[in-house]
Design a binder for these strands. Sequence first.
DNA 1: GTCTATACTTCGATAGAC
DNA 2: GTCTATCGAAGTATAGAC
Lengths: 210, 210
Amino acid sequence: MPRPATVSPDRILAAAAAEFAERGYAGARVDRIARKARVNKAMLYYHFGSKQALYRALLRNTFAVVAARLQHIASSDRPAAEHIDQVVDTLAMFVSEHRHFPAIMLREIADGATHLDRETVRALAALPATVAGIVQQGITRRELRTIHPLVAYLTVLAPIVMFLAGTPIRKELAAEHVAGAANLTTAVFLSQLKDVMRRAFALTPSERIR
Amino acid sequence: MPRPATVSPDRILAAAAAEFAERGYAGARVDRIARKARVNKAMLYYHFGSKQALYRALLRNTFAVVAARLQHIASSDRPAAEHIDQVVDTLAMFVSEHRHFPAIMLREIADGATHLDRETVRALAALPATVAGIVQQGITRRELRTIHPLVAYLTVLAPIVMFLAGTPIRKELAAEHVAGAANLTTAVFLSQLKDVMRRAFALTPSERIR
DNA sequence: GTCTATACTTCGATAGAC
DNA sequence: GTCTATCGAAGTATAGAC
Protein backbone atom coordinates (compact mmCIF):
# COMPACT_ATOMS: atom_id res chain seq x y z
CA MET A 1 0.00 0.00 0.00
CA PRO A 2 1.83 3.18 -1.16
CA ARG A 3 1.89 6.13 1.21
CA PRO A 4 0.51 9.42 -0.06
CA ALA A 5 3.19 11.39 -1.89
CA THR A 6 3.27 14.17 0.70
CA VAL A 7 3.43 12.79 4.21
CA SER A 8 3.22 15.12 7.21
CA PRO A 9 6.89 16.07 7.72
CA ASP A 10 7.27 16.90 4.04
CA ARG A 11 4.16 19.03 3.97
CA ILE A 12 5.39 20.82 7.07
CA LEU A 13 8.76 21.50 5.47
CA ALA A 14 7.11 22.88 2.37
CA ALA A 15 4.87 25.15 4.42
CA ALA A 16 7.83 26.21 6.53
CA ALA A 17 9.78 27.18 3.42
CA ALA A 18 6.98 29.49 2.33
CA GLU A 19 6.52 31.02 5.76
CA PHE A 20 10.22 31.52 6.61
CA ALA A 21 10.88 32.97 3.16
CA GLU A 22 8.00 35.40 3.39
CA ARG A 23 8.47 36.52 6.99
CA GLY A 24 11.95 35.52 8.13
CA TYR A 25 12.79 33.43 11.16
CA ALA A 26 11.52 35.90 13.72
CA GLY A 27 8.45 36.85 11.70
CA ALA A 28 7.43 33.28 10.95
CA ARG A 29 4.54 31.91 12.99
CA VAL A 30 4.38 28.28 13.95
CA ASP A 31 0.58 28.41 13.88
CA ARG A 32 0.64 29.65 10.30
CA ILE A 33 3.07 26.93 9.20
CA ALA A 34 0.84 24.27 10.76
CA ARG A 35 -2.23 25.72 9.11
CA LYS A 36 -0.56 25.94 5.68
CA ALA A 37 0.61 22.35 6.06
CA ARG A 38 -2.88 21.32 7.18
CA VAL A 39 -1.53 19.61 10.28
CA ASN A 40 -2.23 20.26 13.90
CA LYS A 41 0.33 22.46 15.62
CA ALA A 42 1.00 19.76 18.20
CA MET A 43 1.82 17.46 15.29
CA LEU A 44 4.44 19.89 14.09
CA TYR A 45 6.08 19.88 17.50
CA TYR A 46 5.82 16.11 17.61
CA HIS A 47 7.83 15.83 14.39
CA PHE A 48 10.31 18.69 14.74
CA GLY A 49 10.48 19.60 18.41
CA SER A 50 10.70 23.38 18.06
CA LYS A 51 10.50 26.27 15.63
CA GLN A 52 14.29 26.46 15.61
CA ALA A 53 14.75 22.76 14.89
CA LEU A 54 12.25 23.00 12.03
CA TYR A 55 14.12 25.95 10.56
CA ARG A 56 17.43 24.11 10.76
CA ALA A 57 15.99 21.00 9.19
CA LEU A 58 14.60 23.06 6.32
CA LEU A 59 17.94 24.74 5.66
CA ARG A 60 20.03 21.57 5.84
CA ASN A 61 17.62 19.94 3.49
CA THR A 62 17.48 22.73 0.94
CA PHE A 63 21.17 23.52 0.77
CA ALA A 64 22.13 19.86 0.54
CA VAL A 65 19.99 19.53 -2.57
CA VAL A 66 21.38 22.61 -4.38
CA ALA A 67 24.95 21.72 -3.58
CA ALA A 68 24.44 18.16 -4.81
CA ARG A 69 23.11 19.37 -8.14
CA LEU A 70 26.01 21.76 -8.62
CA GLN A 71 28.49 19.02 -7.77
CA HIS A 72 27.65 17.27 -11.03
CA ILE A 73 28.89 20.22 -13.05
CA ALA A 74 32.48 19.99 -11.87
CA SER A 75 32.80 16.40 -13.02
CA SER A 76 31.40 16.99 -16.51
CA ASP A 77 34.05 17.18 -19.22
CA ARG A 78 33.17 20.55 -20.71
CA PRO A 79 34.97 23.89 -21.16
CA ALA A 80 35.10 26.06 -18.05
CA ALA A 81 33.04 28.80 -19.69
CA GLU A 82 30.28 26.29 -20.14
CA HIS A 83 30.54 25.26 -16.51
CA ILE A 84 29.75 28.85 -15.54
CA ASP A 85 26.68 28.80 -17.77
CA GLN A 86 25.64 25.55 -16.13
CA VAL A 87 26.00 27.05 -12.67
CA VAL A 88 23.66 29.87 -13.65
CA ASP A 89 21.16 27.51 -15.26
CA THR A 90 21.27 24.96 -12.45
CA LEU A 91 20.64 27.66 -9.88
CA ALA A 92 17.80 29.12 -11.92
CA MET A 93 16.28 25.69 -12.40
CA PHE A 94 16.56 24.89 -8.71
CA VAL A 95 14.83 28.12 -7.78
CA SER A 96 12.05 27.50 -10.25
CA GLU A 97 11.32 24.36 -8.21
CA HIS A 98 12.05 25.93 -4.82
CA ARG A 99 10.66 29.41 -5.17
CA HIS A 100 11.32 30.29 -1.56
CA PHE A 101 15.02 29.57 -1.63
CA PRO A 102 16.33 33.03 -2.65
CA ALA A 103 14.53 34.94 0.10
CA ILE A 104 15.64 32.42 2.70
CA MET A 105 19.20 32.74 1.53
CA LEU A 106 19.18 36.54 1.67
CA ARG A 107 17.71 36.44 5.16
CA GLU A 108 20.21 33.89 6.37
CA ILE A 109 23.11 36.05 5.19
CA ALA A 110 21.61 39.04 6.98
CA ASP A 111 21.02 36.96 10.10
CA GLY A 112 24.65 35.87 10.10
CA ALA A 113 23.77 32.24 10.82
CA THR A 114 22.58 33.11 14.33
CA HIS A 115 19.85 30.48 14.44
CA LEU A 116 22.02 27.68 13.09
CA ASP A 117 24.02 24.90 14.64
CA ARG A 118 27.31 23.57 13.36
CA GLU A 119 25.79 20.84 11.23
CA THR A 120 23.51 23.29 9.42
CA VAL A 121 26.35 25.73 8.80
CA ARG A 122 28.27 22.88 7.26
CA ALA A 123 25.35 22.19 4.93
CA LEU A 124 25.23 25.86 3.87
CA ALA A 125 28.98 25.87 3.33
CA ALA A 126 28.63 23.30 0.57
CA LEU A 127 27.13 25.93 -1.77
CA PRO A 128 30.05 28.41 -1.89
CA ALA A 129 32.54 25.56 -1.62
CA THR A 130 31.12 23.82 -4.66
CA VAL A 131 30.88 26.92 -6.86
CA ALA A 132 34.32 28.09 -5.78
CA GLY A 133 35.62 24.62 -6.63
CA ILE A 134 34.19 24.79 -10.14
CA VAL A 135 35.84 28.18 -10.69
CA GLN A 136 39.14 27.00 -9.24
CA GLN A 137 39.11 24.04 -11.62
CA GLY A 138 38.70 26.43 -14.57
CA ILE A 139 41.59 28.56 -13.34
CA THR A 140 43.87 25.58 -12.81
CA ARG A 141 43.12 24.38 -16.34
CA ARG A 142 44.04 27.86 -17.60
CA GLU A 143 40.61 28.39 -19.09
CA LEU A 144 39.58 31.17 -16.70
CA ARG A 145 41.66 34.10 -15.57
CA THR A 146 42.99 34.17 -12.03
CA ILE A 147 40.39 35.44 -9.60
CA HIS A 148 39.57 34.75 -5.98
CA PRO A 149 37.06 31.88 -6.18
CA LEU A 150 34.77 33.46 -3.60
CA VAL A 151 34.72 36.70 -5.57
CA ALA A 152 33.59 34.67 -8.55
CA TYR A 153 31.04 32.87 -6.39
CA LEU A 154 29.54 36.15 -5.20
CA THR A 155 29.68 37.70 -8.65
CA VAL A 156 27.64 34.88 -10.13
CA LEU A 157 25.33 33.98 -7.31
CA ALA A 158 24.47 37.32 -5.72
CA PRO A 159 22.76 38.80 -8.81
CA ILE A 160 20.76 35.62 -9.45
CA VAL A 161 19.54 35.33 -5.90
CA MET A 162 18.77 39.01 -5.60
CA PHE A 163 16.94 39.07 -8.91
CA LEU A 164 14.83 36.05 -8.07
CA ALA A 165 14.12 37.11 -4.50
CA GLY A 166 13.41 40.62 -5.73
CA THR A 167 10.40 39.95 -7.90
CA PRO A 168 7.90 41.46 -5.42
CA ILE A 169 9.91 44.61 -4.81
CA ARG A 170 10.59 44.96 -8.53
CA LYS A 171 6.87 45.24 -9.04
CA GLU A 172 6.79 48.07 -6.54
CA LEU A 173 9.64 49.77 -8.37
CA ALA A 174 7.83 49.38 -11.67
CA ALA A 175 4.81 51.10 -10.11
CA GLU A 176 7.14 53.99 -9.21
CA HIS A 177 8.32 54.15 -12.82
CA VAL A 178 11.87 52.92 -12.39
CA ALA A 179 13.06 52.56 -15.97
CA GLY A 180 13.16 48.95 -17.13
CA ALA A 181 11.73 47.49 -13.93
CA ALA A 182 8.59 46.41 -15.72
CA ASN A 183 10.21 44.72 -18.72
CA LEU A 184 12.99 42.61 -17.23
CA THR A 185 12.02 38.97 -17.61
CA THR A 186 13.83 36.05 -16.03
CA ALA A 187 14.86 34.76 -19.45
CA VAL A 188 16.43 38.08 -20.47
CA PHE A 189 18.09 38.44 -17.11
CA LEU A 190 19.66 34.98 -17.21
CA SER A 191 20.88 35.27 -20.76
CA GLN A 192 22.46 38.68 -20.15
CA LEU A 193 23.97 37.48 -16.89
CA LYS A 194 25.62 34.50 -18.56
CA ASP A 195 27.08 36.86 -21.15
CA VAL A 196 28.38 39.15 -18.42
CA MET A 197 29.96 36.25 -16.55
CA ARG A 198 31.68 34.85 -19.63
CA ARG A 199 33.31 38.20 -20.28
CA ALA A 200 34.16 38.69 -16.63
CA PHE A 201 36.01 35.39 -16.25
CA ALA A 202 37.36 34.76 -19.74
CA LEU A 203 41.09 34.89 -20.39
CA THR A 204 42.11 37.86 -22.52
CA PRO A 205 43.81 36.97 -25.81
CA SER A 206 47.28 37.83 -24.46
CA GLU A 207 46.71 35.67 -21.39
CA ARG A 208 45.62 32.81 -23.59
CA ILE A 209 48.98 32.62 -25.39
CA ARG A 210 51.09 31.67 -22.38
CA MET B 1 24.07 77.52 22.68
CA PRO B 2 24.82 74.59 20.30
CA ARG B 3 22.82 71.43 20.75
CA PRO B 4 24.74 68.19 21.35
CA ALA B 5 25.79 66.57 18.09
CA THR B 6 23.53 63.58 18.58
CA VAL B 7 20.07 64.63 19.63
CA SER B 8 17.44 62.02 20.58
CA PRO B 9 15.86 61.27 17.18
CA ASP B 10 19.27 60.79 15.59
CA ARG B 11 20.44 58.47 18.34
CA ILE B 12 17.22 56.53 17.99
CA LEU B 13 17.71 56.18 14.24
CA ALA B 14 21.27 54.97 14.73
CA ALA B 15 20.16 52.40 17.28
CA ALA B 16 17.28 51.36 15.03
CA ALA B 17 19.68 50.79 12.14
CA ALA B 18 21.73 48.40 14.26
CA GLU B 19 18.71 46.56 15.62
CA PHE B 20 16.79 46.22 12.33
CA ALA B 21 19.95 45.13 10.51
CA GLU B 22 20.77 42.50 13.09
CA ARG B 23 17.30 41.09 13.66
CA GLY B 24 15.04 42.20 10.83
CA TYR B 25 11.78 44.09 11.14
CA ALA B 26 9.91 41.32 12.94
CA GLY B 27 12.84 40.37 15.14
CA ALA B 28 13.67 43.92 16.17
CA ARG B 29 12.56 44.91 19.68
CA VAL B 30 11.49 48.44 20.46
CA ASP B 31 12.77 48.05 24.00
CA ARG B 32 16.21 47.13 22.71
CA ILE B 33 16.31 50.08 20.32
CA ALA B 34 15.38 52.44 23.14
CA ARG B 35 18.03 50.97 25.42
CA LYS B 36 20.73 51.15 22.74
CA ALA B 37 19.80 54.76 22.07
CA ARG B 38 19.76 55.47 25.80
CA VAL B 39 16.30 56.98 25.64
CA ASN B 40 13.13 55.98 27.37
CA LYS B 41 10.85 53.81 25.30
CA ALA B 42 8.02 56.33 25.69
CA MET B 43 10.39 58.91 24.20
CA LEU B 44 10.85 56.76 21.15
CA TYR B 45 7.08 56.57 20.64
CA TYR B 46 6.84 60.29 21.25
CA HIS B 47 9.24 60.98 18.39
CA PHE B 48 8.28 58.29 15.89
CA GLY B 49 4.81 57.06 16.80
CA SER B 50 5.31 53.34 16.16
CA LYS B 51 7.85 50.66 15.35
CA GLN B 52 6.69 50.73 11.75
CA ALA B 53 6.98 54.49 11.40
CA LEU B 54 10.48 54.35 12.87
CA TYR B 55 11.45 51.67 10.37
CA ARG B 56 10.11 53.69 7.46
CA ALA B 57 11.86 56.84 8.62
CA LEU B 58 15.13 54.94 8.85
CA LEU B 59 14.80 53.55 5.34
CA ARG B 60 13.78 56.82 3.70
CA ASN B 61 16.68 58.49 5.40
CA THR B 62 19.30 55.92 4.49
CA PHE B 63 18.33 55.40 0.87
CA ALA B 64 18.03 59.12 0.24
CA VAL B 65 21.64 59.58 1.34
CA VAL B 66 23.10 56.76 -0.82
CA ALA B 67 21.16 57.83 -3.86
CA ALA B 68 22.25 61.44 -3.44
CA ARG B 69 25.91 60.44 -3.33
CA LEU B 70 25.58 58.30 -6.43
CA GLN B 71 23.81 61.10 -8.27
CA HIS B 72 27.07 63.09 -8.32
CA ILE B 73 28.77 60.41 -10.37
CA ALA B 74 26.51 60.77 -13.39
CA SER B 75 27.28 64.47 -13.70
CA SER B 76 31.07 64.09 -13.50
CA ASP B 77 32.81 64.35 -16.85
CA ARG B 78 34.69 61.06 -16.80
CA PRO B 79 34.77 57.91 -18.95
CA ALA B 80 31.92 55.47 -18.32
CA ALA B 81 34.29 52.75 -17.11
CA GLU B 82 35.44 55.11 -14.42
CA HIS B 83 31.84 55.82 -13.47
CA ILE B 84 31.41 52.12 -12.74
CA ASP B 85 34.47 52.16 -10.49
CA GLN B 86 33.04 55.18 -8.73
CA VAL B 87 29.74 53.41 -8.14
CA VAL B 88 31.60 50.54 -6.48
CA ASP B 89 33.76 52.87 -4.41
CA THR B 90 30.90 55.14 -3.42
CA LEU B 91 28.82 52.21 -2.23
CA ALA B 92 31.76 50.74 -0.33
CA MET B 93 32.48 54.10 1.26
CA PHE B 94 28.86 54.60 2.21
CA VAL B 95 28.72 51.19 3.84
CA SER B 96 31.90 51.84 5.78
CA GLU B 97 30.00 54.73 7.36
CA HIS B 98 26.67 52.91 7.57
CA ARG B 99 27.65 49.38 8.47
CA HIS B 100 24.08 48.24 8.88
CA PHE B 101 22.94 49.20 5.41
CA PRO B 102 23.70 45.93 3.56
CA ALA B 103 21.79 43.67 5.93
CA ILE B 104 18.82 46.02 5.91
CA MET B 105 18.82 46.05 2.15
CA LEU B 106 18.93 42.25 1.88
CA ARG B 107 16.09 41.95 4.36
CA GLU B 108 14.00 44.53 2.59
CA ILE B 109 14.34 42.68 -0.71
CA ALA B 110 13.30 39.45 1.01
CA ASP B 111 10.40 41.22 2.71
CA GLY B 112 9.18 42.53 -0.63
CA ALA B 113 8.55 46.01 0.75
CA THR B 114 5.66 44.77 2.89
CA HIS B 115 6.24 47.19 5.74
CA LEU B 116 6.66 50.21 3.51
CA ASP B 117 4.38 52.99 2.35
CA ARG B 118 4.49 54.62 -1.03
CA GLU B 119 6.82 57.43 -0.03
CA THR B 120 9.39 55.01 1.37
CA VAL B 121 9.22 52.82 -1.73
CA ARG B 122 9.90 55.93 -3.78
CA ALA B 123 13.00 56.61 -1.67
CA LEU B 124 14.25 53.06 -2.20
CA ALA B 125 13.59 53.34 -5.93
CA ALA B 126 16.16 56.11 -6.21
CA LEU B 127 19.00 53.62 -5.75
CA PRO B 128 18.35 51.36 -8.78
CA ALA B 129 17.13 54.32 -10.79
CA THR B 130 20.36 56.23 -10.23
CA VAL B 131 22.70 53.33 -10.95
CA ALA B 132 20.69 52.29 -13.98
CA GLY B 133 20.85 55.91 -15.16
CA ILE B 134 24.64 55.95 -14.90
CA VAL B 135 24.86 52.75 -16.92
CA GLN B 136 22.38 54.01 -19.50
CA GLN B 137 24.45 57.15 -19.95
CA GLY B 138 27.52 55.03 -20.69
CA ILE B 139 25.58 52.98 -23.23
CA THR B 140 24.16 56.06 -24.95
CA ARG B 141 27.67 57.52 -25.23
CA ARG B 142 28.79 54.23 -26.79
CA GLU B 143 31.31 53.61 -24.05
CA LEU B 144 29.57 50.57 -22.62
CA ARG B 145 28.03 47.70 -24.47
CA THR B 146 24.26 47.39 -24.67
CA ILE B 147 22.86 45.74 -21.57
CA HIS B 148 19.64 46.03 -19.63
CA PRO B 149 20.45 48.76 -17.06
CA LEU B 150 18.81 46.80 -14.24
CA VAL B 151 20.90 43.76 -15.08
CA ALA B 152 23.95 45.97 -14.74
CA TYR B 153 22.58 47.40 -11.51
CA LEU B 154 22.14 43.93 -10.01
CA THR B 155 25.47 42.71 -11.35
CA VAL B 156 27.33 45.51 -9.62
CA LEU B 157 25.34 46.01 -6.50
CA ALA B 158 24.31 42.50 -5.48
CA PRO B 159 27.86 41.19 -4.94
CA ILE B 160 28.90 44.26 -2.97
CA VAL B 161 25.91 44.16 -0.69
CA MET B 162 26.11 40.41 -0.20
CA PHE B 163 29.83 40.53 0.50
CA LEU B 164 29.51 43.31 3.03
CA ALA B 165 26.42 41.89 4.72
CA GLY B 166 28.03 38.48 4.70
CA THR B 167 31.00 39.14 6.94
CA PRO B 168 29.54 37.26 9.93
CA ILE B 169 28.52 34.21 7.94
CA ARG B 170 31.86 34.22 6.11
CA LYS B 171 33.55 33.75 9.46
CA GLU B 172 31.36 30.71 10.05
CA LEU B 173 32.31 29.38 6.64
CA ALA B 174 35.97 29.95 7.36
CA ALA B 175 35.56 27.91 10.53
CA GLU B 176 34.16 25.11 8.37
CA HIS B 177 37.22 25.35 6.13
CA VAL B 178 35.62 26.75 3.00
CA ALA B 179 38.61 27.50 0.81
CA GLY B 180 39.44 31.20 0.67
CA ALA B 181 36.77 32.28 3.14
CA ALA B 182 39.38 33.32 5.66
CA ASN B 183 41.60 35.34 3.35
CA LEU B 184 39.16 37.50 1.36
CA THR B 185 39.60 41.09 2.50
CA THR B 186 37.36 43.99 1.53
CA ALA B 187 40.19 45.64 -0.40
CA VAL B 188 40.87 42.53 -2.49
CA PHE B 189 37.19 41.98 -3.05
CA LEU B 190 36.56 45.54 -4.26
CA SER B 191 39.57 45.64 -6.54
CA GLN B 192 38.70 42.30 -8.16
CA LEU B 193 35.07 43.29 -8.46
CA LYS B 194 35.95 46.50 -10.28
CA ASP B 195 38.09 44.51 -12.64
CA VAL B 196 35.24 42.07 -13.24
CA MET B 197 32.78 44.89 -13.93
CA ARG B 198 35.07 46.67 -16.36
CA ARG B 199 35.40 43.52 -18.42
CA ALA B 200 31.72 42.74 -18.14
CA PHE B 201 30.54 46.10 -19.46
CA ALA B 202 33.38 47.13 -21.77
CA LEU B 203 32.84 47.30 -25.51
CA THR B 204 34.72 44.61 -27.38
CA PRO B 205 37.28 45.87 -29.94
CA SER B 206 34.97 45.12 -32.87
CA GLU B 207 32.09 46.96 -31.20
CA ARG B 208 34.34 49.93 -30.59
CA ILE B 209 34.98 50.41 -34.30
CA ARG B 210 31.41 51.24 -35.29
C1' DG C 1 9.88 66.47 26.80
C1' DT C 2 10.60 62.66 30.18
C1' DC C 3 9.47 58.69 33.04
C1' DT C 4 6.84 54.62 35.50
C1' DA C 5 3.54 51.39 35.38
C1' DT C 6 0.61 48.68 33.00
C1' DA C 7 -3.04 47.31 29.58
C1' DC C 8 -3.62 44.35 25.77
C1' DT C 9 -2.07 40.97 22.44
C1' DT C 10 0.39 37.43 20.37
C1' DC C 11 3.28 33.55 20.29
C1' DG C 12 5.98 29.33 21.33
C1' DA C 13 5.31 25.40 23.66
C1' DT C 14 3.07 21.59 26.34
C1' DA C 15 -0.23 18.88 29.21
C1' DG C 16 -3.22 15.37 28.88
C1' DA C 17 -7.19 12.90 26.69
C1' DC C 18 -7.95 9.68 22.97
C1' DG D 1 -0.03 9.70 16.00
C1' DT D 2 -3.66 13.21 16.69
C1' DC D 3 -6.31 16.80 18.94
C1' DT D 4 -8.12 20.59 22.39
C1' DA D 5 -7.21 23.70 25.67
C1' DT D 6 -4.22 26.56 27.90
C1' DC D 7 0.02 28.30 30.29
C1' DG D 8 3.57 31.63 30.64
C1' DA D 9 6.70 34.65 28.42
C1' DA D 10 7.40 38.55 25.51
C1' DG D 11 6.13 42.25 22.88
C1' DT D 12 3.86 46.83 21.20
C1' DA D 13 1.78 50.57 22.78
C1' DT D 14 -0.32 54.05 25.95
C1' DA D 15 -2.13 56.38 30.16
C1' DG D 16 -1.04 59.69 33.18
C1' DA D 17 2.15 61.98 36.56
C1' DC D 18 5.83 65.33 36.43
